[in-house]
Amino acid sequence: MEHYVIIEKLCSCAKREGLDQITIFDDKSKAKGAADKQLAHMQGSFCGKHEFDVTEVDDHFVIGMLGGCDCSSSAKH
């Protein structure tokens, strides 16, 4: 069974870094580990205008944005 790590919305920081919106894993624990690692990276190195969290949905892991995204694609971070 495949397990996905999904970035719900690619903000300008995620786009700038070229992150994939969906990453596929064959093992649920590896997907969870990758989601947690990606979350830590996004929380620690993005612009800081918003926070993210990970939610498990049907054996997949969705990285969602808490609140709205008010950074623009032209903003310098």
Rank of each mutant, 00 (worst) to 15 (best):
D53M: 12
V62K: 06
G48Y: 10
S73R: 07
C11E: 03
V54M: 06
C11W: 00
C71P: 09
K32S: 06
H50L: 05
S74Q: 13
Q21P: 00
D58S: 15
I7Y: 00
S45L: 11
Y4L: 11
G18T: 05
S72Y: 13
D20N: 13
D36G: 09
K28T: 01
L10A: 02
K28A: 04
I24Q: 08
M42C: 08
L66K: 12
K76G: 10
F46C: 08
I22E: 15
C71Y: 10
K15V: 09
C69H: 11
G18N: 05
A14W: 01
L19A: 03
A75D: 15
I7P: 00
Y4P: 02
K37V: 14
D26R: 11
F25V: 07
R16Q: 07
G33L: 05
E8G: 06
E8L: 13
V57T: 08
F25C: 05
Q21K: 04
F25D: 08
M65I: 15
E8P: 07
T23P: 01
G68P: 02
C13D: 00
A75T: 04
D70F: 15
T23V: 14
S29G: 02
Q21V: 00
H60T: 14
T55E: 15
L10M: 09
D27A: 03
K15N: 10
T55F: 14
C13W: 00
H60V: 04
G68E: 15
L19K: 04
V54R: 00
D59M: 08
M65Y: 03
I24S: 10
D70S: 12
A40T: 04
T55I: 13
K32D: 08
K37I: 07
L66G: 01
G33C: 05
S73M: 11
Q43K: 10
F25E: 03
K9S: 03
D59N: 14
G44K: 11
A75Y: 03
G33F: 04
D59R: 04
R16H: 12
K32Y: 09
D36V: 07
A35M: 08
H41K: 05
G68R: 15
A40N: 10
Q21G: 01
K30D: 13
G48N: 09
G68C: 11
F61V: 09
F61Q: 11
D26L: 14
I24Y: 05
V54L: 07
Q43W: 02
D27Y: 07
K76F: 11
F61E: 13
G64H: 09
V62P: 01
V5E: 05
A35R: 02
V54Q: 01
I7D: 00
S73I: 06
S72H: 13
A34T: 09
E2C: 02
V54G: 05
K37T: 13
L39G: 00
D59A: 10
I7C: 01
G33Q: 07
D36K: 14
T23K: 09
G44N: 14
E2N: 10
M42I: 15
D27W: 04
G33K: 01
E51Y: 14
F46R: 03
E17G: 04
A31G: 03
C69S: 06
L66E: 06
C11Q: 02
K15E: 11
V62C: 06
D59K: 06
L39H: 01
E56H: 12
D53S: 10
V62Q: 06
I6F: 11
E51M: 14
C47H: 05
M65S: 07
